[in-house]
């Protein structure tokens, strides 16, 4: 509901009341949360949005019991390698995807659970030195992995039972791919950012690398979050985790950059700044809303089309916010 409730323009600056705490999930296991996500879940003919929380050694599925009240349905225990990230799979039902590893992702696993038989299983989708991964519509997962000699970029089609139906190799660029983003409205297009600050475009059906376009030197290590194709242009939402504050522009949290794939040229469209004096960001984008955790322990939310910080969620009595993710379909903002 958060995205729906955001006022269109806030000329006077951020307004805290535009984020409202809807409900709290309290985990009695005392383990530190590393990520949070949502998943569509179908049981007994009823499809609902459930919350998934991850600690280093366990992933828990929560269901809504009553308004503002959530109960833990099931916990998968993953004791060998720590969980470091959850990978949302848009429009996928009854499948939880997690990345495990130490500093880098070493494994991607699918977690399944049946309430009818009270049975669960894991299935291994990918191993290697995985640099970037994204879940796409239609149960597809794209990842880039690297050995000393070469980079592999691969799309895996997942079956409903947690297996891998099909694998399609994508042509790797020379530079390491650091992030992927689906292109809204174009099922067969995928964009990625590289360690050399380029945006690359693939054809997922053929595996072709269609275009490499330079982002510019202004902000190093740009990360793509989302892309939209419109009127022959590709609009890419980038975040800039390493950008320093400047007097003229402040610190960029997100930028929307328009690329012309036909010519490879680009132009900045919108610039979303961190609130003055703030630093640090771990960002997530849904539709045209960006959210990021700041080093102060606050969560900031931006309207990316207007370049406005629309809301700030300050640290609460329980402590500083450490992670923020949009729920599937923009149903809310999850913060941990």
């Amino acid at each position: 509901d958060v995205a729906e409730q955001l006022p269109p323009v806030l000329p006077e600056g951020p307004r805290e009341e535009s984020l409202q705490l809807v409900s709290e999930l309290k985990d009695s296991s005392c383990s530190c949360a590393v990520d949070v996500s949502t998943v569509w879940w179908e049981a007994a003919g009823c499809r609902e949005l459930r919350v998934v929380t991850a600690s280093e050694s366990a992933v828990s599925l929560w269901e809504p019991l009553a308004p503002d009240c959530w109960g833990k349905v099931y916990t998968w225990h993953l004791r060998e390698i720590p969980v470091i990230q959850m990978i949302p799979l848009p429009d996928t039902c009854n499948l939880v995807c997690v990345a495990l590893g130490e500093l880098e992702i070493g494994e991607i696993r699918l977690l399944l659970y049946s309430s009818e038989t009270d049975s669960s299983k894991h299935s291994l989708v990918k191993t290697g030195n995985i640099k970037a991964v994204v879940g796409l519509k239609d149960q597809r997962l794209v990842s880039s992995s690297r050995t000393m000699q070469e980079q592999q970029v691969e799309m895996v089609s997942l079956s409903e039972t947690g297996g891998s139906k099909d694998r399609q190799a994508l042509m790797p660029p020379e530079e390491t791919v650091t992030a992927f983003a689906e292109v809204e409205g174009m099922r067969e297009a995928l964009v990625g950012t590289t360690a050399g600050n380029s945006v690359v475009v693939w054809n997922l059906k053929t595996g072709q690398l269609l275009r490499k376009m330079h982002v510019g030197y202004s902000y190093p290590a740009s990360i793509c979050h989302r892309a939209y194709s419109d009127s022959g242009l590709l609009f890419v939402v980038l975040s800039h985790p390493l950008a320093k504050e400047s007097e003229s522009c402040g610190s960029p949290a997100f930028r929307v950059v328009a690329f012309n794939p036909h010519t490879g040229r680009s132009a900045g469209v919108m610039f979303s700044c961190l609130p003055p004096g703030c630093a640090g960001r771990q960002g997530d984008v849904w539709d045209t809303a960006g959210a990021a955790v700041l080093t102060s322990g606050a969560v900031a939310v931006w309207d990316l089309l207007r370049g406005r910080c629309a809301a700030v969620l300050h640290p609460g009595p329980a402590g500083h916010w450490a992670l923020a993710r949009w729920a599937a379909g923009g149903a809310g903002l999850l913060a941990g």
Partner: peptide, 23 residues
Amino acid sequence: CSESDLGPISLNWFEELSAEAPP
């Protein structure tokens, strides 16, 4: 963004680049 910044725009860029790019 103006066309002078970005160059000529093609609405069919995805199909055109797919036809030109190495398989």
